[in-house]
Design a protein around this nucleic acid. Structure first.
Lengths: 207, 207
DNA sequence: GTCTATATGCTGATAGAC
DNA sequence: GTCTATCAGCATATAGAC
């Protein structure tokens, strides 16, 4: 029953277990501090099996990083010219806040990677992001030129939206400590979304 | 000439060299990844001397963390009721942006510590911060009740100011990549300060 | 695919000469 | 105070039985 029954299934399940476990260990222990043994323990598998699927630690990290970036990218929505400034910003903030509360780990992995100097990040990832920001900046510029929003620097606006939304993921420990709470509750997403949306729209002159 | 001439001077200089080197290594390599050997190399001292002054790696990290927190705390200025909302927020943003550009390393050390779960942070540091936020939130509440600023959640406002200003320190690599630049220039502090100040004041209804 | 045993290399920390 | 030599422990990764 257990042997070779669903050949690819075992593999997929194991890989998923390993990546989930690895994400936690890499966040709390850092790259070097994360031992293959601790990843295996967290995944409920023998160490040798982990190395069977990934060959070495670096491959595990790369897989975690890639999965994380993909998930994050898919979740943050988009800014399109058709929506107009108000709706576009509203949508974007809501998507980012929701991602931050529902998947803080992805944000943390990415944040640590950047803070440490993006040593494992491929060049294309950086170029891609530069392109993304420039493209969106152009859209903001279009709205500004048409007088549809305040004349502010679009790149810094994007930075502000990124940082203020991701803060609830990356610094969740600090936020919760200050709020004197153990965990986020479901109302928090709505509350933070409302705060940030109205604050930022006002900052953009879109009230 | 070299021996026992200025007994305390050598010690102070060595300790300073070690802490400066350690800050860099801890940021790029993480706690576990930072080897005493690499700290010693960066400081230009033999490994044994580093351990002579600090006994073990954890002591080095604690010293770096403490020095970092003190420096950061001293640099972020304050929010006082006498200044009124507009001036207080202006001062606070300027102080934080200046610190972020002039001492990004302190911000990074702190950010990594929080992201990783504040494992090395003492309880009193967390309690202190909670007190600080509550105290400042009360001041904002006072201004709001007097109708001197928009009715917004003060705690989330503090989070937004923290995150948007620290972003230029913690994510300097990303910011510079997107701007396609190698380093910050002196105009950047002024530019970012102006952007954030006017944006956030507008968000607070203080234009 | 799963698991045990082991080789190899590196790290933190100490001992002790100078 | 400074530095060399060294040890004990641990982590990655592999070999190979099942």
């Amino acid at each position: 029953m257990k042997k070779n029954n669903k050949p690819q299934k075992v593999r997929a399940v194991s890989i998923d277990k390993i990546l989930t476990a690895a994400q936690d260990v890499f966040i709390t222990q850092g790259y070097k501090g994360a031992t293959v043994q601790s990843i295996a323990d967290n995944a409920g598998l023998p160490k040798a099996n982990v190395l069977y699927y990934f060959q070495n630690k670096e491959n595990i990290y790369h897989a975690v990083l890639e999965q994380t970036l993909t998930m994050w990218d898919e979740g943050i929505g988009d800014i399109t010219i058709e929506d107009g400034p108000k709706l576009a910003i509203e949508k974007f903030i809501r998507a980012k806040v929701t991602m931050s509360f529902k998947n803080p780990k992805a944000s943390k992995i990415y944040a640590m990677e950047i803070i440490q100097g993006a040593q494992h990040l491929q060049d294309f990832a950086r170029t891609y992001q530069r392109q993304w920001v420039r493209e969106k900046a152009k859209i903001f510029k279009y709205w500004i030129d048409k007088g549809e929003m305040q004349d502010i620097d679009p790149v810094n606006l994007i930075f502000l939206i990124w940082s203020s939304t991701q803060h609830y993921a990356d610094f969740d420990n600090q936020v919760l400590t200050i709020m004197n709470r153990a965990d986020y509750e479901k109302d928090d997403i709505e509350h933070v979304t409302n705060f940030l949306t109205s604050f930022i729209l006002r900052g953009c002159g879109l009230t």
